[in-house]
């Protein structure tokens, strides 16, 4: 159990770290949305899941899993809201292809 929890925590941390690196390296707002929306959801879910495994089947682990559910609902929603707001505000995406193609 401890091994599983440790693996989940470390892998979750790795995903969050990748998300942060993504935010730093990617060229524009829309690309950074990918790093935010995906790596963070997965990383946080894994870390909280790891903590729940460490805790065993108690009220605390149920609460942790509830937090996972709420985050995995809220994070894509926030990503979508940010992206939509950017489109409505007329932000042009950075692209390597010819415009209009």
């Amino acid at each position: 159990m401890n091994v599983l929890a440790t693996v989940m925590l470390v892998v979750g941390f790795g995903f969050i770290l990748a998300g942060v690196i993504g935010i730093l390296r990617l060229p524009d707002f829309y690309c950074r949305l990918h790093a935010m929306g995906k790596c963070d959801t997965l990383g946080v879910a894994l870390m909280l899941g790891g903590l729940a495994v460490l805790e065993g089947f108690t009220l605390t682990s149920v609460k942790l899993l509830l937090v996972v559910v709420f985050i995995s609902l809220a994070n894509p929603t926030a990503t979508h809201a940010l992206g939509r707001a950017a489109v409505r505000a007329g932000l042009r995406p950075w692209t390597t292809t010819e415009p209009g193609s």
């Binding site: 993504g22 829309y30 690309c31 995906k38 997965l42 995406p93 390597t96």
Partner: peptide, 20 residues
Amino acid sequence: AGLEVTYTVLHPRLPISPRI
């Protein structure tokens, strides 16, 4: 999705070609 974004982001040449 998480694995793919992680791979893309950590790739030294950052192999993206974003589009709408």
